[in-house]
Amino acid sequence: MTSFWLGRGGRALAVLALLGVFTMALPQLIPGDPAIAVLGTQATPEQIALFHSKLDLDQNPFVRFGNWIAQAVQGNLGTSLTTDASIADEFARRLPVTLQLVLASQVIALGLAIPVALRQAWRPNGLMDRIATGISFVLLSMPGFVLGLVLIYLFAVRLSWLPATGWVPFVEDPLGNLRTLVLPALTLGLAEAAIYGRALRSDLVTTLDQPFIHAATSRGMRPGKILVARAFRPSSLSLVTLVGLGIASSIGGSILVETLFAVPGMGRLAQGAILARDFPVIEAVVLVAGCAVVLMNILVDLSYRFIDPRITHGNN
């Protein structure tokens, strides 16, 4: 286990260091001068020069990353070029919103995918399986913003059940928060549910053909128990991997969904920063999202040991 942690930790640090240096090179790599984006097209050369100096654009990416790390470990992620606001404070406002959205969307996705996939796998090619497969293909082929617009039309415009846009913080009004959370979470969750469902169904069908399942069936075990207690756990490796990747990739924010529903999360922050060439914010978002991906991958690897004890890491 120690070697597992040392190995994975070392690789994780190497990945993050590489990502950090690459991120710090972005100001040189991406076309578009942040000075013009921030100061406007009538900025004077003196203003532009002052701006470049403040951004340390003359330093190489390794030095910039070193400086960034030195500040980050003290809790200072820098200052936004466009607002002069502390990026750490901005994250403190935005990250909980995105995390809540990610959590809700995963609950919806898993809540739909697991029971439906179990039912599909028990009778492959049956009526339920064919209907669920058709629906999942529709969801998979539909871009997120189209699904979001359809949901807005249905639940906000036609039924007037939910607000089309906006966000109410949980601490202000828990019920209002739920109302503003449902549509964006559903938009993200339905698409994820289709992916999770397809993967889980496929693995379950394979598992249900294993001898130990046939043995359980012949002993008279109930179908529900066979599915949940015997087949689900060994069939969930792909699902866990996808959930891990889904959560990790969402920590950086879902730009489309957050923009469509005006959710003030990390995606909106990243989008605004990219358009404004607000590099300190871009760098911080990329690195935090990178950390999330690395961490989730480690957790997924760890979870394999609990799902299937035959899987070990390191020398064992």
């Binding site: 913003f145 979001g148 617009l149 807005i152 039309y153 906000a156 415009v157 007037s160 607000p163 089309a164 846009t165 906006g166 923009t259 469509l260 529903f261 005006a262 003030p264 909106r268």
Partner: peptide
């Protein structure tokens, strides 16, 4: 003032009296 960057959903917010 509410910041509603998406053109379509901003319009739908008006339609739904948000």
């Amino acid at each position: 003032f509410m910041f509603l960057p998406d053109t379509d959903s901003r319009y739908q917010s008006l339609v739904t009296d948000a």
